[in-house]
C-alpha cells in the first residue's frame, strides 16, 4: 500500500486495534492516507473486528468524520464491526452535535471496547 503509516496497528485475539498517531486529523492529504490504511484492513487483510483508538486525537474535521462514515458503511457491508474508543470530551461533542454518536458504537476506552467484542 502506498503512503506513510498514520495508524499504529495491534492485534488482540481476532480484534484489530488501530490507534491514530496524529493529534490533528484535519487535512485532506492526511485523511486520505488514514482512509487508505483503514480500508486496507478490511479489503486486503480481511479484518472484520476493528477498534479505532482516538486517545491521541485532539482535533478532527468534518472531512475526517466523512471518512469514518465511509469506513463504517464499508464495514457493515463486509458484515464486520467497528468500535470507537478514547474520544476526549471536546471531540465527543463534535460527534454529538452531528448525531454521529448514534451512528457509531463508542466506548470510553480500549479495554471497554475490547470487552465482549
Amino acid at each position: 500500500m502506498a503512503g506513510e503509516r498514520r495508524l499504529d496497528i495491534e492485534d488482540v485475539g481476532d480484534v484489530t486495534v488501530a490507534r491514530f498517531i496524529d493529534k490533528k486529523i484535519l487535512d485532506e492529504n492526511n485523511i486520505q492516507k488514514i482512509g487508505n490504511q483503514l480500508f486496507g484492513l478490511i479489503d486486503e487483510d480481511a479484518r472484520r473486528k476493528i477498534v479505532l483508538d482516538f486517545s491521541n486525537v485532539e482535533y478532527l474535521s468534518s472531512a475526517a468524520l466523512g471518512k469514518l462514515i465511509t469506513l463504517n458503511n464499508k464495514m457493515k457491508k463486509a458484515k464486520g464491526k467497528l468500535r470507537l474508543c478514547g474520544i476526549r470530551p471536546d471531540i465527543y461533542e463534535v460527534f454529538a452535535i452531528t448525531k454521529l454518536n448514534t451512528v457509531f458504537d463508542i466506548y470510553d476506552d480500549r479495554d471497554q471496547a475490547l470487552t465482549g467484542f
Binding site: 468534518s62 468524520l65 466523512g66 465511509t70 463534535v94 452535535i97 452531528t98 448525531k99 448514534t102 451512528v103
Partner: peptide, 18 residues
C-alpha cells in the same frame, strides 16, 4: 441537514453545522 435520518450515514455536509 446532515442530522436528518436520510443523511446521517452520508459522508459530507457537516462543516457548516460544526
Amino acid at each position: 441537514d446532515p442530522t436528518d435520518d436520510d443523511n446521517l450515514e452520508k459522508p459530507g455536509g457537516r462543516g457548516i453545522m460544526l
